[in-house]
Amino acid sequence: MITLDDIKSNPAIVDDLDWPFDFSLERADDDTDWIHLKPNHSFTIVAGDGTGGVFIAYGQGAPESLPILYATSEGQAGKVASNLSEWLALLMAIPYWRDLLKFSGNGDLEEMRKTVPFMESEYATDFDDVPAARERIMNELPVPAVADPVQILHTNVHSTDCTVVADDGCAYETLFNSFKSADNPNWR
């Protein structure tokens, strides 16, 4: 199992995870007053991203062994991985995971799969630093191979057993969005 200390001990890996994977250990904000989990669990913010979202390990035990909940700054939350190692495997396999959830047709696995080729093409063109960063990370950390990362992400978000509750008492919405790949005019 990959630990936070394994990552933190290698500044180059910390940098690669920050960009291009937008998983920044340095953005793990110490201000947790706004986070209220339902049901109530102890938690640790393990990382943040450039949009103000946070990755939260919740439950009892070492943070790297706990489920990972992602909470956006716009009021969505959901479980994205069963532990840190699985999350890193998903990041390496589908760095465009947010787009898969956005274009999921409200959580439809087949709709997510339709989005993959479009995102692969966009990432090959617009994020040419991903392959080298992925290779460095995979060479330094024992990131497990995952046979079907889209299925794993889909299953994790559908099995969300914990969410964030806003100060007004409203629970955060699901990470799944209603868009479909056909809704993007550039993907036709």
Score class of each variant (00 low, 15 high):
Asp5Trp: 09
Asp6Leu: 09
Ile7Glu: 00
Lys8Leu: 14
Asn10Asp: 14
Asn10Phe: 02
Pro11Glu: 05
Pro11Val: 07
Ala12Phe: 07
Ile13Ser: 03
Asp15Leu: 12
Asp16Val: 09
Leu17Gln: 04
Leu17Phe: 09
Leu17Ser: 02
Phe21Val: 08
Asp22Gly: 06
Phe23Glu: 04
Glu26His: 12
Arg27Gly: 05
Asp30Leu: 15
Asp31Gln: 12
Asp31Ala: 15
Thr32Pro: 13
Thr32Trp: 15
Leu37Met: 07
Pro39Asp: 11
Asn40Lys: 13
His41Met: 10
Phe43Glu: 05
Ile45Lys: 07
Val46Leu: 11
Ala47Trp: 01
Asp49His: 13
Gly50Arg: 14
Gly52Pro: 06
Gly53Glu: 04
Phe55Glu: 04
Ala57Phe: 11
Gln60Arg: 14
Gly61Met: 12
Pro63Lys: 01
Ser65Asn: 11
Ser65His: 09
Leu66Ala: 00
Pro67Trp: 05
Leu69Gln: 06
Tyr70His: 11
Gln76Cys: 14
Ala77Thr: 15
Gly78Ala: 10
Ala81Phe: 00
Asn83Arg: 05
Leu84Arg: 07
Leu84Pro: 00
Leu84Ala: 10
Glu86Asp: 09
Glu86Pro: 03
Glu86Val: 06
Glu86Met: 08
Leu88Thr: 01
Leu88Ala: 02
Leu88Met: 02
Ala89Glu: 01
Ala89Tyr: 03
Leu90Met: 11
Met92Lys: 07
Ile94Met: 06
Trp97Tyr: 15
Trp97Lys: 03
Trp97Gly: 08
Trp97Pro: 03
Trp97Leu: 01
Asp99Ala: 10
Asn106His: 14
Asn106Glu: 12
Asp108His: 01
Asp108Phe: 04
Asp108Tyr: 06
Asp108Val: 10
Leu109Val: 00
Glu110Ile: 02
Glu111Trp: 00
Thr115Lys: 05
Phe118Ala: 07
Met119Cys: 06
Met119Ser: 03
Glu120Val: 15
Ser121His: 12
Glu122Gly: 07
Ala124Pro: 05
Asp126Ala: 13
Asp129Ser: 15
Asp129Leu: 01
Asp129Phe: 00
Val130Gln: 07
Pro131Val: 05
Ala132Gly: 15
Ala132Arg: 13
Ala133Gln: 05
Ala133Pro: 09
Arg134Thr: 10
Arg136Asn: 04
Arg136Ile: 05
Asn139Pro: 00
Asn139Leu: 02
Glu140Phe: 09
Pro142Ile: 03
Pro142Gln: 00
Pro144Lys: 06
Ala145Gln: 04
Ala145Phe: 06
Ala145His: 07
Ala147Val: 06
Asp148His: 04
Pro149Val: 00
Val150Ile: 06
Ile152Val: 12
Ile152Asn: 06
Leu153Asn: 03
Thr155Glu: 11
Val157Gly: 05
Val157Ile: 07
Ser159Met: 04
Asp161Arg: 11
Asp161His: 15
Cys162Gln: 09
Val164His: 04
Val165Cys: 04
Ala166Gln: 09
Asp168Ala: 10
Asp168Gln: 13
Tyr172Pro: 06
Phe176Leu: 14
Ser178Val: 14
Ser181Asp: 01
Asp183Trp: 04
Pro185Met: 08
